[in-house]
């Protein structure tokens, strides 16, 4: 039996009819046409399907599409509407990614981290990112970009003295 689901994706309103067994990941990719959340394990282990649900990172392979009725989703497509975010810019400059398959999930997880904890310590960045698997980079250039972005943001928002 289909269920009507109304949700916002990157600020845009969507009304969809979904089956209870449909995963949010599948619905986003095949019905909404948002491709950045990627299947990597489809059981919660890799983080490549990460989306922000009301601002918090969740694994869209572990969420049924019916569950998000009335909620707001952000994917990496919704971050850079006015160009790249500070974090994304640092990631490009530092060549943080290689194959890039993990990148959307990692960008969102790091975005959430910086929203919750704008000046994280290195070990806090590592802990926050430790549920997003990357097979290519060894993580160091990703962690460096998060720390650099945090430092830049702090420098630009610091009150003049």
């Amino acid at each position: 039996m289909g269920h009507a689901v109304a949700l916002k994706v990157n600020g845009e309103s969507w009304s969809l009819e979904v089956e209870p067994a449909e995963l949010l990941l599948e619905v986003l990719r095949s019905r909404v046409g948002i491709k950045s959340p990627k299947p990597g394990c489809e059981r919660g282990d890799c983080g490549s399907c990460t989306v922000l649900l009301d601002g918090r990172s969740v694994r869209s392979c572990l969420v049924l599409a019916v569950e998000v009725d009335g909620h707001e989703l952000t994917t990496v497509e919704g971050l850079g509407i006015d160009g790249l975010t500070e974090l994304q810019q640092r990631m490009v400059e530092l060549s943080s990614f290689q194959c890039g398959y993990c990148a959307p999930g990692i960008v969102l997880t790091a975005t959430e981290l910086l929203a919750v904890n704008p000046r994280p310590e290195r070990h806090e960045v590592q802990a926050a990112m430790s549920g997003n698997l990357c097979r290519c980079t060894g993580y160091a250039p990703i962690i460096d970009a998060v720390l650099t972005a945090a430092a830049t943001a702090a420098a630009t928002t610091a009150p003049e003295v």
């Binding site: 919660g44 983080g47 990460t50 990172s57 969740v58 969420v63 549920g131 997003n132």
Partner: peptide, 12 residues
Amino acid sequence: AGMVASVGIRNR
């Protein structure tokens, strides 16, 4: 709680 899985799981 901080040792359970990952942030993305703990949020849910």
